[in-house]
Nucleic acid binder design. Structure first.
Length: 272
DNA sequence: AGTGGCACCTGTGTGC
DNA sequence: TGCACACAGGTGCCAC
């Protein structure tokens, strides 16, 4: 479910009920996610939430008594509830404010992450963020940067786009989509792209992620924002998940191949 | 250092 | 209806 737009939409959905509110109760599940749940998360009870932001696909929540780093993994979602009475199946973590609203993390496959960062430590300096590339919407992610970075990489450009050292926030769906939009064959070596192609790719990445956020995120199966409403960007996908269907530009059947143990979708005629 | 392969999980859909 | 199997949006670690 969650690529960067989904995380951004989720963050916006949980900001109003949480930001500048005080945590009354923290509820922890018993299952291990990517890491075991840290019992110290319970020490956030009584804390006031000072700031909330996204870095890559992580949500970072700073409070007066420490910070939380959240990741949704493959199947995680955060929901706002006004009737929370305890964790249900696949729920792992919940915070309830003094106003009685709860934000609940549900993650079926448990690839997500909830990490406690001690008061005084900057969560953005956490190990999970070490070595990460630029945010796609930042000035640092520009045509020149992308060209210079890809020049040093010999793997397939589609696989390179998934590498968070190159740029954060591009998942398997958008990697296929941006390469289709820019007419670049996903099998080409990253270092074969011209400066001009990198420029188009850079702009297309910013554009497609922005448009997806505006649409409320991509729905593959059942993504929904914190309000439970589904995203609608799936209707705008052109090649992802459409093997054999006609290319929207030329009608040639969309091909599906495997790259780096992930599926890639592309038009063999339009993308060169 | 860069790359490819695999592991972490559960639910769903498909074909027999 | 039941069963086996393939497959899924992400990320980190491992050996080469």
């Amino acid at each position: 479910m969650p690529e960067l737009p989904e995380v951004e939409v989720t963050l916006r959905g949980i900001t109003k009920p949480l930001l500048h509110h005080r945590i009354k109760k923290v509820t922890l599940g018993t299952h291990k996610l990517r890491l075991p749940l840290d019992p110290k998360l319970a020490t956030l009870e009584g804390a006031e939430i000072d700031s909330m932001q996204r870095r890559a696909k992580y949500i970072v929540i700073k409070t007066s008594q420490g910070s939380v780093i959240l990741h949704l993994g493959m199947t995680g979602h955060l929901r706002v509830r006004d009737d929370f009475e305890g964790l249900l199946k696949h729920d792992h973590f919940a915070v309830t404010t003094e106003e009685g609203l709860s934000v609940v993390l549900n993650d079926m496959r448990r690839f997500g992450l909830v990490k406690f960062v001690a008061p005084g430590d900057d969560p953005l300096e956490d190990k999970v963020f070490q070595g990460m590339g630029p945010e796609p919407f930042s000035e640092d992610f520009n045509p020149r940067y992308l060209y210079q970075t890809l020049q040093k990489r010999s793997l397939a450009v589609k696989v390179a786009l998934l590498d968070s050292k190159v740029v954060v926030g591009i998942g398997n769906i958008y990697a296929s989509e941006v390469l289709f939009e820019t007419g670049i064959d996903p099998r080409r070596r990253a270092d074969s792209l011209t400066e001009d192609e990198c420029g188009k790719l850079c702009l297309q990445i910013k554009d497609i992620l922005q448009r997806s956020i505006q649409k409320g995120g991509t729905t593959i199966r059942d993504f929904s924002g914190a309000d439970g409403k589904p995203g609608y960007f799936v209707q705008n996908l052109k090649v992802y998940g459409k093997p054999g269907e006609p290319c929207p530009a030329c009608g040639t059947p969309i091909e599906r191949i495997e790259q780096g143990q992930r599926h890639t979708f592309f038009c063999p005629v339009c993308q060169k």
